Amino acid sequence: MVLKSRGALLFATSEEAEQAFYEALEQGDLGQLMAVWAEDEDVVCIHPGGPRLIGHEAVQESWREILGNSPLSIRPTRIHAVQSMMSSVHTVVEQVMVDTAQGKQVVNCYATNVFHKGPTGWRMVLHHSSQAPADLGTAEMQDVPDLLH
């Protein structure tokens, strides 16, 4: 249940925070997107093929630039979460809809979203996304790896 306290959103679970993150991307709403992030100078964001961005301001500026073009159509799938009392690590396959010369196509990305629980509920502290191999088939998108390394 998402609650409001003094105008700020409180996410009761990391799943709610993650859902709000992807909804904000779909809506192109920078304010809602940044409400998911911790207001901390230690937050980190890495976009596919981009540099490591550290700090709330750097993360916000990167999203402002990205959302300035248009909202993003990203559907998180294959969610796997590992959670403790105060932190939660989610790995997802993001299905990103992109416009190409051939029309709309889906590009798969692997993403890791890390959330910490604090006095203001669950907040994102890291988002790292990278493009998955182009030839990624359904069999390769399995939840349990064949090999440990």
Rank of each mutant, 00 (worst) to 15 (best):
E61F: 04
H80V: 08
V125C: 07
W122P: 10
M34W: 13
Q142K: 14
G49N: 08
P145R: 07
V106L: 03
S88C: 03
L30H: 09
P133F: 12
R123T: 04
S84D: 05
R123D: 00
G49L: 00
Q27K: 14
M97P: 00
S84L: 00
S88Q: 01
S70L: 04
L147S: 02
K117P: 01
H80I: 06
L148G: 15
G49K: 00
A132G: 15
G31Y: 10
P71D: 07
E41W: 11
G31D: 15
P133L: 13
P76V: 08
T77M: 03
L53T: 04
E65D: 13
A101D: 14
R78G: 05
F21C: 01
G103E: 11
V44W: 01
D135R: 14
M141A: 10
S62W: 00
S70V: 00
A111P: 07
S129N: 11
M34H: 13
P71W: 00
S88A: 10
L136G: 00
I66C: 12
L147W: 03
Q142H: 13
V107I: 11
E39I: 02
V98I: 01
L25N: 08
A38I: 03
D40W: 05
P76G: 05
N69Q: 13
V96W: 02
V98E: 03
H128M: 10
Q83H: 13
W122F: 10
E26H: 14
H90P: 08
E26Q: 12
V43F: 13
E61M: 06
A24T: 03
S130A: 13
Y22V: 06
H128D: 07
V125R: 05
V59D: 02
T138S: 11
A35V: 06
Q131I: 12
T120E: 12
R64P: 05
